[in-house]
Design a binder for these strands. Structure first.
Lengths: 149, 149
DNA sequence: GCATATATTTAAGCGGACTTAACTAAAAAG
DNA sequence: CTTTTTAGTTAAGTCCGCTTAAATATATGC
């Protein structure tokens, strides 16, 4: 019980640490890139879901279709996205990253990874083994809670 | 070597997972609250650093003093922050969260913790022990890389 | 086939966050 | 004690992202 509380707190702390580093590094990168956070989040969504329609995006970004449509406009003009007709439904559009867009997002991800890779490098083989084991335990736990949702 | 690569990738994946859940849950919470992301990030900084001056904030948020001053203005009016004179340097201001502001930030943090706590609950005692060990290994590694910076 | 629903775009307009420049006041330097 | 530097505010103006409302075009239901 008392131990569980302590454990929960160190897990929380690690979530904080990962999140803070990630956000900080991403925000810095995006600011320097000249693109806005809104544009970045949109491209991130497209990256995560591969191609998707306008309404898929507005749903996940919790905003209106109109807003997404306008954002996509600018990103198409900037050559970061393509917007093509969905062959199965000619009302719908299929939004995809261009090569340039994909490179941009992947760079932003790599920036975040710099720190976590440093962390990995600081471990001995034995430590690495123990941490790997823990990560796979967490993987299992995640599958368990997601199947419940 | 080949194992290290694999390890690095699962660590990266966990950083992604934590970050994605965190950001998603925070963004949702903040949107529903009526405050803006800019206001939220500012209050988050104040929370992390306890009291701090305008220029401390603008430095960490990578923006101008003027921008921060105006944001703080609105948050003082909204009764989320106090802005008082620094007794040691009467040019400077000391920005602090009000009770209401602190509650808001702590709620936003608790929202993020819902998921990670579910994860913790899904572990057996033995699994918990192994994960706890791994987290303390990562703690040590972090101290090591931070002392190098 | 006609009415309705869906997917998206366009236009107008609002509010917010940011920038620059000028300003006030206090501290530090000489 | 004057000059310079530092901390912050204020004001004007810009740009961006968002919203609402109307429009277009395609798909679906009866």
């Amino acid at each position: 019980m008392t131990n569980s509380l302590q454990f929960s707190q160190s897990l929380r702390k690690w979530m904080d640490t990962f999140t803070y580093r990630s956000m900080h590094d991403s925000a810095r990168f995006v600011k320097n890139s000249g693109y806005s956070m809104a544009q970045f989040f949109l491209m991130m969504q497209v990256y995560r879901r591969e191609h998707c329609g306008i309404s898929d995006l507005s749903e996940h970004l919790e905003t209106s279709n109109a807003a997404v449509s306008q954002l996509v406009d600018k990103l198409v003009q900037a050559n970061m996205l393509t917007r093509t007709e969905d062959p199965n439904d000619r009302r719908a559009k299929k939004v995809e990253l261009t090569k340039e867009g994909r490179t941009f997002i992947e760079e932003s991800i790599n920036v975040r990874y710099l720190w976590v890779d440093q962390l990995a490098d600081a471990l001995s083989n034995e430590e690495e083994h123990k941490v790997a084991k823990a990560l796979s335990i967490l993987d299992e736990a995640m599958k368990k809670i997601e199947s419940r949702e």
